[in-house]
Design a binder for these strands. Structure first.
Lengths: 245, 245
DNA sequence: ATAATAGTGTCTGTGAGACAGTATTCT
DNA sequence: AGAATACTGTCTCACAGACACTATTAT
C-alpha cells in the first residue's frame, strides 16, 4: 500500500463509482465535495520488555522526516477492515492477528494537503511471529516505545495516546493481552504484559490467583527452562473457557 | 441536513479541494476513486418508560418506505462531530447533549447507490428538553422502542444493536445514564433508566446503596410530589465528584 | 382506612489486595 | 553454596446481592 503522504499519480479527477441500480434510479452521488478516506493501523508489540509501536518515516511533504502511523487509502471495493489487513500484511508480513477498529479521526486541517478522514485500527502482534516475518528493516521503518516517542506527523501523537487508553481499558475485562504473547507462555510473561501496558508493578501471587481462577489458562505440561533457576510452567490460552477475567 | 438517501443534485463532478500548500508541493489527491462519507446519529431518549430511538422514513430508493437512522453528508470544512451536532440540531432542535462517536461502518455494498462510509455517533437526550424542543412530528419522523423496531434500511439494524451494546457496556462504569434524565430526578427514576437499558429488574435497596455511596448525587432539598403517595427526594448529578460508579 | 410509592439495614459470600517464605534449577 | 527465578496461602476489607418492613402522602 502506498504510504500515506507519498505523492500520488497525475491530475486526473477520480471517477466516481456508481452502481447500475443507482443509474437506473437516476441517483447522483457526485454533488458534494468529498473528503478522502484512509485507514491507519497502529501496530503494537512487545519487544525488549517494552510496548512498542511500528512507525514509518515520512519522505515527503508534509511532515517530511517525521514519523507516522502506517496507513493508506481505502480501495473502493474493499471493506475498512480488509484495507487495514492489507496494510498490516504489507508492513509486517503477518496475517491473522488481533485487529480492532479504534476510532475515526477527521478534523479538517489534520492533514494540510486536503480533507482526510482516517479510520484507525489497532493491531496486536506477538513478538515471536513478528521475528519470523520479514521485518522490513529499512531505515524508514522502526519500532518505538510508546513511552518514548519521536516527534510524530499529523495528529498521530493523539492517536497513539488514544490507542494506549483503549488498550489499558480493555485489559482487565477482555482477553486482549494474550494477543501479545506467543501460543505458549509462562504466567510471569503474562504478568509482564500487564505490567508493561498498565505501567505499574503487580503482586505476583494475586495476579496468578486471579488469572488461574478464571480457568482461561490450560497447562501445556511443558516447562520453559532458561537461565540458572527453576523452570516455569508453560500455559496456553483456552478460548473455549470464555471468561472475561 | 439532507436526509441520507434523498436524491441529490445534478451530475457535475464534485470539485476536489486542495490547499494552496498542496498545490505548491505538487501534491495530487485525486488519483483514487473515493468513497462518500456520511455521519449518522443514533438519538436515544427515554419516552413512556421505554428506550426509544428517532428514525426517519425514507421517501426514495433505496429502501423506500423503510425507516432509517438520520444522517447526512459531512461538509468539506466541518469536523465529524460538528456534522453530527448539525444533524442533531436539525432533527430535534436540541443542542448541548451527550454525543459520542460510536463506530464507523463502511462495508462495500452496504448502500446500493455507491460506496458510503458512515461514521456513526450516538446522542442521549433527556425527555424533558425534548418535549420543549420542536418535535418535528411529521409523519416521516418517529420514535421507536429499541426493543420493537420496524424494518430498517441499510445496515441500520446492526448499527442499533451495536449502539445498545455500547450503551449497556458503559452504563456501570460511567455516568452516561444521567444524560437521559432532566437536571433533577428521583432515585427511582434513575433506577428506571438502568432497568430499561439493561432490560432487567434491579433491587431497590442495593441500587440506592450503590449510587449514594459514590457521592455523585447531590440532594436538592426539593421533593417530587405526584400521585397519592409519599413524595420522593429530588437529586442532582454532581459532576465535581468524579466517580466512576 | 386504603392505596400507592418512598425509604431503610443486615447478613453472607466473593473477590481484591497486602504480605513472606519455600522450591527448583544451574554453575 | 550461591544465584536466580518459580511457586504457594492467609488474612482483611470492601462490595454485591438476597431479602421485608416502615414512612408519608392523597383520597
Amino acid at each position: 500500500m502506498e504510504e500515506q503522504g507519498t505523492s500520488v499519480g497525475n491530475n486526473m479527477q477520480g471517477r466516481l463509482r456508481v452502481t447500475k441500480e443507482a443509474e437506473e434510479h437516476h441517483y447522483d452521488v457526485s454533488k458534494y465535495e468529498r473528503p478522502s478516506v484512509t485507514i491507519d493501523v497502529v501496530m503494537m508489540s512487545l519487544r525488549q520488555r517494552d510496548l512498542q509501536v511500528l512507525l514509518i518515516k515520512r519522505r515527503s511533504w508534509p511532515f517530511e522526516g517525521m514519523w507516522a502511523i502506517p496507513g493508506g487509502f481505502v480501495n473502493i471495493d474493499e471493506s475498512l477492515e480488509d484495507a487495514a489487513k492489507r496494510e498490516l500484511q504489507e508492513e509486517t508480513g503477518v496475517q491473522d492477528v488481533y485487529l480492532e477498529q479504534l476510532y475515526t479521526f477527521g478534523d479538517p486541517g489534520r492533514d494540510p494537503r486536503t480533507r482526510v478522514i482516517t479510520v484507525v485500527y489497532f493491531a496486536l502482534l506477538d513478538s515471536e511471529r513478528l521475528q519470523v516475518s520479514a521485518a522490513s528493516d529499512a531505515a524508514d521503518v522502526g519500532w518505538f516505545s510508546v513511552y518514548d516517542l519521536p516527534p510524530l506527523a499529523f495528529d498521530h501523537e493523539k492517536i497513539l495516546q488514544y490507542t494506549l487508553g483503549r488498550l489499558r481499558g480493555k485489559l482487565d475485562y477482555t482477553t486482549i493481552a494474550f494477543n501479545l504473547l506467543p501460543e505458549r507462555f509462562t504466567l510471569r510473561e503474562l504478568q509482564r504484559v500487564y505490567e508493561i501496558i498498565l505501567h505499574k508493578k503487580m503482586d505476583k501471587r494475586n495476579f496468578r490467583k486471579k488469572i488461574l481462577s478464571t480457568g482461561i489458562l490450560e497447562d501445556t505440561g511443558a516447562k520453559k527452562m532458561e537461565g540458572t533457576h527453576r523452570p516455569a510452567r508453560l500455559y496456553r490460552f483456552n478460548p473455549a473457557a470464555e471468561s472475561q477475567l
